[in-house]
Design a protein around this nucleic acid. Sequence first.
DNA 1: GTATGTTTCCTAAAAGCTTTAGGCAGTGTA
DNA 2: TACACTGCCTAAAGCTTTTAGGAAACATAC
Lengths: 190, 190
Amino acid sequence: MARAGLTPHRLALAGADLADEVGFEQVTASALARRFGVKVASLYSHVRGTQDLRTRIALLALEELADLLAAALAGRSGAAALAAYANTYRDYARTHPGRWAAMQLRLDADTAAASAGRRHVELTRAILRGYDVAEADHPAAVRLLGSAVHGYVELEASGGFSHSAPDSQETWPRVLDALDALLRHWPEPR
Amino acid sequence: MARAGLTPHRLALAGADLADEVGFEQVTASALARRFGVKVASLYSHVRGTQDLRTRIALLALEELADLLAAALAGRSGAAALAAYANTYRDYARTHPGRWAAMQLRLDADTAAASAGRRHVELTRAILRGYDVAEADHPAAVRLLGSAVHGYVELEASGGFSHSAPDSQETWPRVLDALDALLRHWPEPR
DNA sequence: GTATGTTTCCTAAAAGCTTTAGGCAGTGTA
DNA sequence: TACACTGCCTAAAGCTTTTAGGAAACATAC
């Protein structure tokens, strides 16, 4: 019996692809074993279980998106950087719905700390370099920016915008404009 | 054998409570049947299955939150309305983690259209009445506002802010300030 | 090239969840 | 009281998860 060449990483990768095809909810140890032409129990040598598998997919997606964001931000600043960041984020969610859903998984504290989460924060912070926001306000600005982009993409993905005019596509540039304006005129603390 | 008095609504309600206690992922037909002291198959007279049950919990949560938001917005405008809205949103997610998780469920188009989603849009739009945002920009402003608040609460819930200083509690008021400032000085279209 | 040890995948099995089908007992109505 | 109806039941098939232990493939040392 020839070996299938399973590794935790390959399982996560195949799981991510499976998620994009059939939905993150459908990613199970069984489904993945089927895809590899392997018995379910075999996966348990590489992965602790379905939960572990899903977590690995989430971490993989976080890394992938961080890589894309880093590439998008390179050589850009100000509104261009903001747009590149936000569009990359949104495109990733649209082209990889399963991976995006995986990213919404609640990670426990240790796992989250070991994730690419910090890179995401750093990348978001990099946008602020093109604006005149006081250092002390960076945390709040980073979180607002991250929240707004993440929230828009998430609401769009879960169908929140799909049943009211105008199309989500139309409001997106205006939202980016508004965020740009907010960063250009960041308010003084009250 | 005395009847347990099951109805779709009571199942959704109990399911929501169960979700808050043990997590939305753990809400299954079996678990709910146990809670009612009833055999699993009995639920199938009232609910089409586990998926249907989860959907009903999500719809219930959307209604509940809409009610709370409506109450919070009553008699307030401007920054006070914005703060009341956002704090209600955030408090709901913190006190009802299972219901909040349920709300993140991807609803199919028809279900979403029949949900309290429209009420949420209307309530968000009500905040704009206290600001001078052009009618044409309301959709974008509503979506930005909704995205930012939703995104912040979601990232907070999924642990995105928990491993970097400062505490999420501290940046929240600054984020609200910034959103208030943005609405007060909403940018002209470029 | 053979012996040894380790890894990889296997079979087997227990346990739980989901869902359908059909039956009997409470409950309300003529 | 007879009736139908509803609500919960038992039974059963099929799937997923997970653990335990075995056998074949692979790597390494002699």
